[in-house]
Simulated assay, not measured.
Amino acid sequence: MVGSSLPRRALGRRLRGFRMQAEKSQLAAGLHIELSPQSIGRMEDGQKVKICTAQIRDLLDFYEVPDPSRERDEVFLLWQEVKDQQLAAKLAGTTKGWWQAYTDQYEPHFDHYLGLEAVATHLTTHQVVLLPGLLQTAGYRRAVSLAGDPNLSADALERRLELAAHRQVRLVDPNFRVNFLLSEGALRHTPGGHPVMANQLNHILELIGSRPNLSIRTVPLDAGSHLGLLAQAFTLLEFPPLASHLAEPPVVFVEGYEGGLYLERTDMIERHRRVIADIQRVALSEDDTKQLVQQIAKEYGA
């Protein structure tokens, strides 16, 4: 959990809630504790900001959070977790997550996603065009990267392959459950050509049924109407309880060509849970998925 953003994210969310309840602006909050409004915003977004315990206490007073109260106690429990994590990171010799060594190889919005993926205990992803990074072979990843930037240098391409391989290490973690819901269309698109896709499909065949923490199911093109057609591609990430035993809410990540969207509202999470249930209703079983993947792999010369 060293480098995890979860305690900071939880602390920021609670402080934002108290600020909005008190009808205070970020400017007013920043002036009260001698921070810029931008720093208040970053803190509320779960980013690192230089702040001390006294400033946290002053903010709670400014927001009129009762003392003593359960709400105030929860904030200080989270603040203690943040400080403990900072100390652990310092002792470990790093204050950054491993993925931040590759920031030159992904878009800025994806940094937050990688931090969340690194600490999630359950991930459900629905993909309709491209296969998710956690399943991609080196050949597939190479083809997708070059499609996005044909002039990508050999060194940059190699670093992207390293990043993808590092992410996939988590698949062997029995405490990390992953449900892949893949449109048949994602299996039929051929970045890199038929040989690359045949190798990619063989990799998926090796994974199907190989680990109890992984589930790979396909939604056939003739599945009929289901909510996945409307929701399209998204990933639901769920997290372990914090050390303070406070629950950390799930996040839905939606990535587009121009950036990423992080959804945290309870109603949005529940809507996507309903989408997942409806996709699972029409998805093939793992055995039938294996047969379909084998069939498509043969078509591509595997």
Rank of each mutant, 00 (worst) to 15 (best):
L263G: 06
R170M: 07
L152A: 05
G193M: 08
Y113S: 08
L15Y: 08
G41K: 01
L131K: 01
A10G: 11
S25P: 04
I216K: 02
E74M: 10
T103W: 13
R142G: 01
G17K: 11
R9K: 15
L261C: 07
G193D: 07
A10M: 09
H126E: 05
A120Y: 03
R16I: 08
K298W: 14
G133N: 05
A147Y: 13
H189K: 12
L78E: 09
G185I: 13
K48R: 12
D104I: 09
L60G: 09
A147I: 04
S210T: 06
V293H: 07
T137E: 01
W98L: 10
A164H: 05
L242C: 06
A143M: 06
E34F: 10
G193H: 03
G256N: 13
V293W: 03
H203R: 14
L237R: 08
A164E: 02
V82A: 11
Q105G: 09
P191R: 04
I56T: 11
R57Y: 15
L230N: 13
Q26F: 01
L205T: 06
H126W: 09
L134P: 04
P174H: 02
Q80Y: 10
G115V: 05
Q47K: 15
R9I: 12
L292I: 09
G97T: 09
A231D: 01
L292M: 05
F110I: 02
L31Q: 13
H226N: 13
R281I: 04
G192P: 00
I276W: 01
E286D: 06
K48G: 08
R141P: 01
A277L: 11
V119P: 02
H166P: 13
Q47N: 13
E258W: 12
A10L: 10
L123F: 12
M268Q: 15
V169R: 12
E238D: 15
A243D: 15
S244R: 08
A302K: 10
R217N: 03
L182D: 01
H226C: 02
K90H: 15
R72W: 05
I204Q: 04
S285H: 09
E23Q: 14
P195K: 11
L227N: 00
D149I: 06
G93S: 12
A231P: 00
G115E: 04
A154C: 11
Q232H: 12
D278F: 00
S244W: 05
V65L: 10
A283Q: 00
